[in-house]
Amino acid sequence: MSDSPVLDVEGLAVTIGTRRGPARAVAGVDWSVQAGQTLALVGESGSGKSMSVLAATGLAPRTARVTGRVRLLGTDLTEVSPERRRRLRGRHVGFVFQDPMTSLNPVLTVGRQVSEAGEEHLGLTRRAARARAVELLDLVGIPSAAQRVDAYPHQFSGGMRQRVVIAMALACEPDLLIADEPTTALDVTTQAQIVELVADLQHRLGTAVVWITHDLGVVAGIADTVAVMYAGRIVEQGPVDAVFAHPAHPYTVALLAARPDPAARGADLVTIPGAPPSPWELPTGCAFFPRCPVRGDARCEHELPPLVPVSGRHQVRTFYPQATDGEDR
């Protein structure tokens, strides 16, 4: 495997035109993902985690203005024609979204939907594509795939539907799989199945994965690197072990502490007061300042902290890195 990233995003910013004026959904992020690796983008709703990925792959809404550089397998997507961007995306990137029901066309058999991408991007014949669909459905663990290839989406359970969506995403043997909250709508035991499936497929196919989620537990299980987003920016990123063992940003620290811990029953949970800032009026300084338990000083309020290294590739965007270790959580 080469060291050059599959997808490399630099200085990506997304501004969405709305009735209330421009909303800054993503305020400049850099991340990249290598073959066979999983990058987890974590954040709460409105943090810009989904939008940064959609914009990077050219799927931002029409009213969005996207700036920055995005390289997919070395090709700068911001410099090619929309048509070529669409083809590159179709050929090299697979998508799995949160709700499998809306990702599937209810009036087409799952076999048709899984084989469609292969016909379009790999030039397979109908017959070959159908055989490939059976193979893919089998790969994602759908029992008796040869029969179920002619079934319709409503004949599948939620977990099975998400497997079909994953089969569709893998149809062109993509170099990159984008999983946008793929397990959020599923039950926890089904989530465990899907997480295991993706990890297994990634291991076998060497696909790079960008996994967008709000669930830190899922991140701990799947990610190699993690980027924590808040108000359109990455506030902390690095190898998953380093970030979870030594979270340095007050926001990451608080998020990790907000989950109920069976060991600390009866105690109140740590909360982050207030709500994230509106994307219509992002503050000039640290966006987390109004809610921050550390509450540094005027510099935090007026000056944007840079991303600074904590150790190795572990970086944090704060003037006051927290010294933590895994034990005091």
Binding site: I16, T18, R19, A23, S45, S47, S50, M51, P61
Partner: peptide, 10 residues
């Protein structure tokens, strides 16, 4: 619901 749709998309 445009505003809600937009919010959930980010």
């Amino acid at each position: 619901t445009v505003s809600e749709a937009r919010r959930s998309s980010t």
